[in-house]
């Protein structure tokens, strides 16, 4: 399958008062047509900032470099008015908090229809009909009535469905969903993931699912990328990472996720706190919390290297990962 998004050497830095902080360092990945990629990491691992930079949505003090090729155009460093020809049309994004991500002063249909008017040149009337259709598609009952509602009149799940409808209106090639279920009730979360799966399948849209919840990843993602301290530390097909993690951090994540850790009989949370990006440790960023560390980890940062043919990891430790042995 062809790649729709190829990211090369992506760096994201933020200028602070006197210093600079590197939120994302040297990130490479590809996204194939129609595939689902899960991006996993704790908060502050740079996973959201990486994708905000691809969308051109960094905060004022943020700066991205590298390449993010959507087809044959590079989105990084593109002028905002040119970027607007792709954002919302070929690449769309859904945000974590559906409560604040919709404009409270505009009706739902206005916020949806403007996408079609902007990118497809629809007339207002045609756009409204397409909006109602799409709202029905994402499972909103009484779509005509809801389309006329203001966001505060809808429940959280309903709002996230509106966000999904908004993102999919132009049948984008890539959809980035940043923690799309975190703010929702557990019962709604499962429905929402089903919806994602079905719709992206139907539209042939490639999905990037940014999350810190491995439970969300399990049933949905084809491939998985684990991030720590602004870098990718392990990458590969979801199944192999789940059953045979090769990086101690991935192992730790699996052991701290309740329904995944069932096999291990008990929860083993990772010790310590995620590092501050301003003061990343020398060597491997994970070494202060790692149970498998040795001298080399303190001094040298491990590069991301292939293991077997479809997997990559960034870790010096080459032995078998067994928690019981250490804990």
């Amino acid at each position: 399958m062809a790649n729709v998004l190829v990211v090369d050497n992506l760096d994201v830095t933020f200028a602070l008062h006197q210093s600079e902080v590197k939120a994302v360092s040297d990130l490479d990945f590809t996204l194939a047509e129609g595939e689902t990629l899960a991006v996993v990491g704790e908060s502050g691992s740079g996973k959201s900032q990486a994708f905000l930079s691809i969308m051109g949505l960094l905060a004022r003090n943020g700066k991205a470099s590298g390449r993010a090729m959507l087809g044959d155009v590079n989105l990084i460093g593109m002028a905002p008015d040119k970027l607007d020809n792709y954002r919302g049309k070929d690449i769309a994004m859904i945000f974590q908090d559906p409560m604040t991500s919709l404009n409270p002063t505009l009706r739902v249909k206005t916020q949806l229809a403007e996408v079609l008017v902007r990118h497809q040149g629809f007339t207002a009337e045609k756009a409204h009909r397409a909006v109602i259709e799409m709202l029905e598609r994402v499972g909103i009952p009484e779509p005509v009535k809801r389309a006329n509602a203001y966001p505060h009149e809808l429940s959280g799940g309903m709002r996230q469905r509106v966000m999904i409808a908004m993102a999919l209106l132009c049948k984008p090639r890539v959809l980035i969903a940043d923690e799309p279920t975190t703010a929702l009730d557990v019962t709604v979360q499962a429905q929402m993931l089903d919806l994602f799966k079905n719709l992206t399948n139907d539209f042939g849209t490639a999905l990037v699912l940014i999350t810190h919840d491995l439970g969300v990843v399990a049933g949905v993602a084809d491939r998985m990328m684990v991030m720590y301290g602004g870098r990718c530390i392990e990458k590969g097909p979801t199944d192999t990472l789940f059953y045979d993690p090769r990086h101690p951090y991935t192992l730790g994540l699996l052991h701290s996720t309740p329904h995944v850790a069932k096999r291990a009989k008990r929860l083993d949370p990772i010790q310590g706190l995620p590092p501050s990006l301003e003061h990343l440790p020398r060597g491997c960023a994970f070494h202060p919390r790692c149970a498998f560390r040795f001298e080399r980890c303190f001094e040298e940062r491990p590069p991301l290297l292939p293991v077997e043919d479809v997997r990559e990891k960034a870790c010096w430790y080459q032995g078998e990962l067994k928690y019981e042995a250490v804990a």
Binding site: G56, S101, H119
Partner: peptide, 12 residues
């Protein structure tokens, strides 16, 4: 966040 959403829609 909602202005960020609007920007993500490529509205100009």
């Amino acid at each position: 966040n909602y202005v960020r959403t609007a920007r993500s829609k490529g509205l100009g």
